[in-house]
Amino acid sequence: MWIQVKQALDQSTMKFLTGTARLLPGIVALIVALVISIFLAWILAFLVRRILAGFHFDEKLRVWGFSAIAEWSPMESPTHLISRTVACLVIVTGLLIGVSAIDAESTSLLVRNVFDYIPNVLGALLVMLVGAVVARYLARSVLIGAVNMNFQYSRLLSAGVKWLVIVLAVAMALEHLKIGPGIVELAFGILFGGIVLALALAVGLNSRELVSKSLERDTNKTQTETFEEPFRHL
Protein backbone atom coordinates (compact mmCIF):
# COMPACT_ATOMS: atom_id res chain seq x y z
CA MET A 1 0.00 0.00 0.00
CA TRP A 2 2.73 2.41 1.10
CA ILE A 3 4.80 1.42 -1.97
CA GLN A 4 1.88 2.24 -4.29
CA VAL A 5 1.45 5.67 -2.66
CA LYS A 6 5.18 6.30 -3.05
CA GLN A 7 5.03 5.28 -6.71
CA ALA A 8 2.08 7.58 -7.37
CA LEU A 9 3.85 10.46 -5.64
CA ASP A 10 7.04 9.80 -7.62
CA GLN A 11 5.10 9.69 -10.87
CA SER A 12 3.27 12.95 -10.16
CA THR A 13 6.49 14.67 -9.07
CA MET A 14 8.18 13.40 -12.22
CA LYS A 15 5.26 14.59 -14.29
CA PHE A 16 5.34 18.02 -12.66
CA LEU A 17 9.11 18.33 -13.01
CA THR A 18 8.97 17.16 -16.65
CA GLY A 19 6.20 19.66 -17.37
CA THR A 20 8.11 22.41 -15.63
CA ALA A 21 11.29 21.46 -17.50
CA ARG A 22 9.35 21.55 -20.74
CA LEU A 23 7.96 25.01 -19.82
CA LEU A 24 11.25 26.43 -18.60
CA PRO A 25 12.72 27.27 -22.01
CA GLY A 26 9.45 29.00 -22.87
CA ILE A 27 9.54 31.06 -19.64
CA VAL A 28 13.19 31.94 -20.23
CA ALA A 29 12.23 32.88 -23.81
CA LEU A 30 9.39 35.08 -22.41
CA ILE A 31 11.79 36.80 -20.02
CA VAL A 32 14.40 37.28 -22.77
CA ALA A 33 11.74 38.61 -25.19
CA LEU A 34 10.48 40.95 -22.51
CA VAL A 35 13.97 42.22 -21.62
CA ILE A 36 14.87 42.72 -25.30
CA SER A 37 11.55 44.47 -25.99
CA ILE A 38 12.01 46.77 -22.97
CA PHE A 39 15.49 47.63 -24.21
CA LEU A 40 14.22 48.20 -27.76
CA ALA A 41 11.29 50.22 -26.43
CA TRP A 42 13.65 52.44 -24.47
CA ILE A 43 15.86 53.04 -27.53
CA LEU A 44 12.87 53.66 -29.83
CA ALA A 45 11.19 56.00 -27.34
CA PHE A 46 14.44 57.93 -27.00
CA LEU A 47 14.81 58.19 -30.77
CA VAL A 48 11.17 59.24 -31.30
CA ARG A 49 11.49 61.85 -28.55
CA ARG A 50 14.67 63.26 -30.07
CA ILE A 51 13.22 63.36 -33.59
CA LEU A 52 9.97 65.00 -32.49
CA ALA A 53 11.79 67.49 -30.26
CA GLY A 54 14.05 68.43 -33.19
CA PHE A 55 10.93 68.88 -35.30
CA HIS A 56 9.38 71.11 -32.55
CA PHE A 57 6.41 68.80 -32.64
CA ASP A 58 4.70 70.22 -29.51
CA GLU A 59 4.77 73.78 -30.85
CA LYS A 60 3.70 72.65 -34.33
CA LEU A 61 0.78 70.69 -32.91
CA ARG A 62 -0.31 73.81 -31.03
CA VAL A 63 -0.05 75.87 -34.21
CA TRP A 64 -2.13 73.29 -36.11
CA GLY A 65 -4.87 73.78 -33.53
CA PHE A 66 -4.45 70.56 -31.50
CA SER A 67 -3.47 72.28 -28.28
CA ALA A 68 -6.04 70.12 -26.42
CA ILE A 69 -3.84 67.05 -26.88
CA ALA A 70 -1.16 68.61 -24.67
CA GLU A 71 -3.56 68.69 -21.74
CA TRP A 72 -4.17 64.96 -22.04
CA SER A 73 -0.47 64.12 -22.40
CA PRO A 74 2.06 63.20 -19.69
CA MET A 75 4.03 66.30 -18.63
CA GLU A 76 1.71 68.23 -21.01
CA SER A 77 3.88 67.17 -23.93
CA PRO A 78 2.44 65.31 -26.95
CA THR A 79 6.04 64.24 -27.74
CA HIS A 80 6.12 62.29 -24.46
CA LEU A 81 2.69 60.84 -25.23
CA ILE A 82 3.84 59.51 -28.61
CA SER A 83 7.21 58.22 -27.38
CA ARG A 84 5.55 56.41 -24.47
CA THR A 85 2.88 54.97 -26.75
CA VAL A 86 5.58 53.62 -29.06
CA ALA A 87 7.43 52.12 -26.08
CA CYS A 88 4.25 50.47 -24.76
CA LEU A 89 3.50 48.99 -28.19
CA VAL A 90 6.99 47.49 -28.45
CA ILE A 91 6.78 46.01 -24.93
CA VAL A 92 3.33 44.53 -25.60
CA THR A 93 4.62 43.02 -28.88
CA GLY A 94 7.59 41.51 -27.00
CA LEU A 95 5.24 40.13 -24.36
CA LEU A 96 3.06 38.50 -27.01
CA ILE A 97 6.10 36.96 -28.71
CA GLY A 98 7.28 35.63 -25.34
CA VAL A 99 3.86 34.22 -24.46
CA SER A 100 3.61 32.43 -27.81
CA ALA A 101 7.02 30.83 -27.10
CA ILE A 102 5.71 29.09 -23.93
CA ASP A 103 3.23 26.81 -25.63
CA ALA A 104 2.84 27.37 -29.32
CA GLU A 105 -0.46 25.53 -29.66
CA SER A 106 -2.49 27.10 -26.88
CA THR A 107 -1.01 30.59 -26.94
CA SER A 108 -1.05 31.17 -30.70
CA LEU A 109 -4.83 31.43 -30.57
CA LEU A 110 -4.56 34.04 -27.80
CA VAL A 111 -1.95 36.00 -29.75
CA ARG A 112 -4.09 35.90 -32.90
CA ASN A 113 -7.08 37.16 -30.95
CA VAL A 114 -5.04 39.95 -29.41
CA PHE A 115 -3.72 41.01 -32.81
CA ASP A 116 -7.24 40.86 -34.27
CA TYR A 117 -8.38 43.19 -31.48
CA ILE A 118 -5.68 45.81 -32.09
CA PRO A 119 -7.55 47.62 -34.93
CA ASN A 120 -10.55 47.98 -32.61
CA VAL A 121 -8.35 49.50 -29.90
CA LEU A 122 -6.75 51.90 -32.38
CA GLY A 123 -10.16 52.87 -33.77
CA ALA A 124 -11.48 53.50 -30.27
CA LEU A 125 -8.43 55.60 -29.39
CA LEU A 126 -8.91 57.68 -32.54
CA VAL A 127 -12.60 58.19 -31.76
CA MET A 128 -11.71 59.32 -28.23
CA LEU A 129 -9.02 61.67 -29.49
CA VAL A 130 -11.29 63.29 -32.08
CA GLY A 131 -14.10 63.43 -29.52
CA ALA A 132 -11.88 65.22 -27.00
CA VAL A 133 -10.69 67.78 -29.54
CA VAL A 134 -14.21 68.41 -30.90
CA ALA A 135 -15.64 68.64 -27.36
CA ARG A 136 -13.12 71.26 -26.36
CA TYR A 137 -13.60 73.30 -29.54
CA LEU A 138 -17.39 73.25 -29.30
CA ALA A 139 -17.33 74.00 -25.57
CA ARG A 140 -15.21 77.11 -26.19
CA SER A 141 -17.34 78.22 -29.13
CA VAL A 142 -20.51 77.92 -27.05
CA LEU A 143 -18.92 79.64 -24.05
CA ILE A 144 -17.67 82.65 -26.03
CA GLY A 145 -20.85 82.92 -28.10
CA ALA A 146 -23.06 82.75 -25.00
CA VAL A 147 -20.97 85.32 -23.10
CA ASN A 148 -21.09 87.68 -26.09
CA MET A 149 -24.87 87.31 -26.03
CA ASN A 150 -24.87 88.22 -22.33
CA PHE A 151 -26.16 84.80 -21.38
CA GLN A 152 -25.87 84.23 -17.64
CA TYR A 153 -25.45 80.45 -17.81
CA SER A 154 -22.70 80.32 -20.40
CA ARG A 155 -20.46 78.00 -18.42
CA LEU A 156 -23.30 75.59 -17.75
CA LEU A 157 -24.15 75.46 -21.44
CA SER A 158 -20.51 75.05 -22.41
CA ALA A 159 -19.98 72.21 -19.90
CA GLY A 160 -23.21 70.57 -21.12
CA VAL A 161 -22.03 70.62 -24.74
CA LYS A 162 -18.59 69.36 -23.75
CA TRP A 163 -19.96 66.38 -21.80
CA LEU A 164 -22.50 65.57 -24.50
CA VAL A 165 -19.71 65.19 -27.03
CA ILE A 166 -17.47 63.28 -24.63
CA VAL A 167 -20.26 60.88 -23.67
CA LEU A 168 -21.02 60.35 -27.34
CA ALA A 169 -17.32 59.67 -28.06
CA VAL A 170 -16.98 57.24 -25.12
CA ALA A 171 -20.10 55.36 -26.22
CA MET A 172 -18.76 55.11 -29.77
CA ALA A 173 -15.35 53.96 -28.49
CA LEU A 174 -16.88 51.26 -26.28
CA GLU A 175 -19.05 50.15 -29.18
CA HIS A 176 -15.86 49.88 -31.22
CA LEU A 177 -14.21 47.82 -28.47
CA LYS A 178 -17.27 45.52 -28.41
CA ILE A 179 -17.59 45.92 -24.65
CA GLY A 180 -21.18 45.27 -23.65
CA PRO A 181 -22.69 46.84 -26.78
CA GLY A 182 -26.27 46.45 -25.57
CA ILE A 183 -25.56 47.96 -22.15
CA VAL A 184 -23.51 50.77 -23.68
CA GLU A 185 -26.31 51.68 -26.09
CA LEU A 186 -28.87 51.71 -23.29
CA ALA A 187 -26.61 53.60 -20.87
CA PHE A 188 -25.69 56.11 -23.57
CA GLY A 189 -29.34 56.73 -24.41
CA ILE A 190 -30.20 57.28 -20.75
CA LEU A 191 -27.14 59.47 -20.07
CA PHE A 192 -27.47 61.54 -23.25
CA GLY A 193 -31.18 62.02 -22.75
CA GLY A 194 -30.54 62.87 -19.09
CA ILE A 195 -28.00 65.56 -19.95
CA VAL A 196 -30.30 67.11 -22.56
CA LEU A 197 -33.23 67.05 -20.14
CA ALA A 198 -31.11 68.51 -17.33
CA LEU A 199 -29.89 71.28 -19.63
CA ALA A 200 -33.39 72.00 -20.89
CA LEU A 201 -34.73 72.16 -17.33
CA ALA A 202 -31.83 74.27 -16.11
CA VAL A 203 -32.11 76.73 -18.96
CA GLY A 204 -35.91 76.67 -19.06
CA LEU A 205 -36.50 77.17 -15.36
CA ASN A 206 -33.78 79.72 -14.86
CA SER A 207 -34.44 81.75 -17.97
CA ARG A 208 -38.15 82.36 -17.53
CA GLU A 209 -37.34 85.87 -16.44
CA LEU A 210 -34.89 86.29 -19.31
CA VAL A 211 -37.47 85.21 -21.89
CA SER A 212 -40.16 87.48 -20.46
CA LYS A 213 -37.71 90.41 -20.41
CA SER A 214 -36.68 89.65 -23.98
CA LEU A 215 -40.33 89.58 -25.11
CA GLU A 216 -40.97 92.81 -23.25
CA ARG A 217 -37.96 94.40 -24.93
CA ASP A 218 -39.14 93.27 -28.37
CA THR A 219 -42.57 94.77 -27.69
CA ASN A 220 -41.02 98.06 -26.61
CA LYS A 221 -38.80 98.04 -29.67
CA THR A 222 -41.75 97.78 -32.03
CA GLN A 223 -43.47 100.57 -30.15
CA THR A 224 -40.46 102.87 -30.58
CA GLU A 225 -39.26 101.87 -34.01
CA THR A 226 -37.02 104.89 -34.33
CA PHE A 227 -34.80 103.83 -31.41
CA GLU A 228 -31.19 103.30 -32.50
CA GLU A 229 -27.98 102.62 -30.62
CA PRO A 230 -25.81 105.75 -30.58
CA PHE A 231 -22.60 103.72 -31.12
CA ARG A 232 -21.14 102.84 -34.53
CA HIS A 233 -18.17 100.53 -34.50
CA LEU A 234 -16.81 100.28 -38.03
Binding site: V147, N150, P230
Partner: peptide, 23 residues
Amino acid sequence: KAELDVGRMVESFRLANRDLREI
Protein backbone atom coordinates in the same frame (compact mmCIF):
# COMPACT_ATOMS: atom_id res chain seq x y z
CA LYS B 1 -27.53 114.16 -26.93
CA ALA B 2 -27.85 110.42 -27.33
CA GLU B 3 -29.35 108.02 -24.83
CA LEU B 4 -26.41 105.89 -23.69
CA ASP B 5 -26.78 102.39 -22.33
CA VAL B 6 -23.38 101.93 -20.73
CA GLY B 7 -24.71 99.56 -18.07
CA ARG B 8 -25.32 96.81 -20.59
CA MET B 9 -21.75 96.95 -21.86
CA VAL B 10 -20.32 96.99 -18.34
CA GLU B 11 -22.51 94.01 -17.48
CA SER B 12 -21.26 92.16 -20.55
CA PHE B 13 -17.67 92.79 -19.45
CA ARG B 14 -18.37 91.60 -15.90
CA LEU B 15 -19.95 88.44 -17.19
CA ALA B 16 -16.96 87.78 -19.44
CA ASN B 17 -14.54 88.51 -16.61
CA ARG B 18 -16.30 85.77 -14.66
CA ASP B 19 -16.75 83.19 -17.44
CA LEU B 20 -13.91 83.79 -19.89
CA ARG B 21 -11.08 83.71 -17.34
CA GLU B 22 -9.95 80.37 -18.73
CA ILE B 23 -9.39 81.95 -22.16
